[in-house]
Simulated scan of single mutants.
Amino acid sequence: MSATQFKHIVALGSSFASGPDIEPIIDKAANRSANNYAHLLAEKLGAELTDVTVSGATTDTIIDTPQRLLNKTYPPQLDSLPADADLVTITAGGNDLEYAGSMIKLGSAGRLSTDPHTHPLATQLARGGVPQPTSDDIDRAATNLVRIVDAVRDRAPNAQVLLVGYLAVMGPDTCYSHEVPLDDATVGAFRHLGDQVDEVFARAATTSGADLIPMNEYSLDHALGSSEPWVRGLPKQLREIYRLMPFHPNDAGMRAVASTIYDHLQTN
């Protein structure tokens, strides 16, 4: 099917799909933007969109576990999958491995550690360091992604399924700064964690046969510290974290993901 033939897109996933704090926000509890990559892609294709992405989602909350945020409960995302969907995008698994959440926690710790008054809090936040998923953790996340793909095919048999990977946050140009208050070892550990999230997607694509859009690979030169980052670092003031979610895609990043998917659909 050519890109111009898609009529109904469905977006499943977590915050790297929902677009937290990218205006305009159309669902505050889900922190879902009208300018996330699914909306931009639907506009390019002239297609209807069903966007059920929710910040903080895991593979479980997509499959069969309700997700509660700000006194609002979201049913499992697959429950909202219409049978007439002909293109389904999936960006999930990062929260299964504590990817972005741990960056926010350790980045905040790095910023707070520079002030003697907040140093004890920084020590608490930094406890445990960068997550180190086991092979079982990676297997479970990959298996759940395959379960999502299988469920999509059961419920929407005519849908093309795309596994859309996470944008790179830490790249070759990332180093200590006010925006990324992490030492080289921690930056390297987060790059490795990003590679493990990538591995989840690669395994799921191989097993399920779904198309893979490896955004981590495509965006390494647009990670933090680059001349044109596609993600945000820590804001100038930590109190702005709830208005500008750090270590997540920015507007340019969402446009890049939408364009990459569109180009993939044109050539495959």
Rank of each mutant, 00 (worst) to 15 (best):
L45R: 07
A185Q: 14
V169C: 04
Y242A: 11
R239W: 11
A210I: 08
A11L: 11
T186V: 14
E217L: 11
M170F: 13
H39G: 02
Y262T: 02
V146M: 01
Y99W: 13
T91G: 06
A3S: 15
E240F: 12
I26F: 04
I26V: 15
A83V: 08
A122N: 00
M103D: 06
N158Q: 15
I90M: 07
W230E: 02
T65I: 11
D96E: 14
S2P: 14
P181S: 02
T91D: 12
S219N: 08
T118E: 00
A151M: 05
D84A: 11
A189Y: 01
S177T: 13
R191A: 15
G171P: 04
G233Q: 08
A126G: 15
E228P: 00
P131H: 08
H178A: 15
R239C: 06
V187K: 06
L70H: 11
S15Q: 10
A168H: 04
P131R: 10
D221C: 01
L182F: 02
V52A: 12
V146S: 02
L70N: 13
D251H: 11
P20H: 04
L87G: 07
I261R: 09
N268K: 06
S18R: 01
D84S: 14
A126E: 01
T206Q: 13
R155S: 11
N250P: 13
A156I: 03
N216I: 10
A29H: 04
A47V: 07
L125Y: 03
S259P: 00
D211R: 14
G233F: 05
A30C: 09
V257A: 03
F247W: 07
Y218A: 13
G56Q: 10
E98W: 02
S2G: 12
G110M: 00
I90D: 01
H222C: 06
L69I: 15
S33K: 06
S219P: 00
N95I: 08
A252F: 08
L193P: 11
A3W: 05
A168C: 07
D150I: 06
I213V: 15
F247D: 02
G194P: 01
R203Y: 01
A100P: 02
A83G: 04
A38M: 04
A205F: 07
A159K: 06
T4P: 00
F247K: 02
Q67E: 08
V130F: 09
A189C: 05
L49T: 12
I148R: 11
L125M: 13
Y262P: 00
H39S: 15
T89D: 06
D139I: 01
D184S: 14
A189F: 01
S18C: 10
A202R: 15
V180R: 00
D173L: 07
R232D: 13
S208R: 00
A202E: 14
P214T: 01
N71L: 10
I90S: 01
G194S: 14
V149S: 05
S14C: 06
D211W: 00
P246R: 07
P181W: 00
S227M: 02
G209M: 05
P214W: 02
A202M: 09
P235A: 08
L121V: 08
G233I: 09
V52F: 12
A47M: 07
A204D: 04
Y74A: 05
S15D: 09
A92D: 13
T143G: 15
L163S: 10
C175Q: 14
I25R: 03
S259V: 01
L212H: 10
E98H: 10
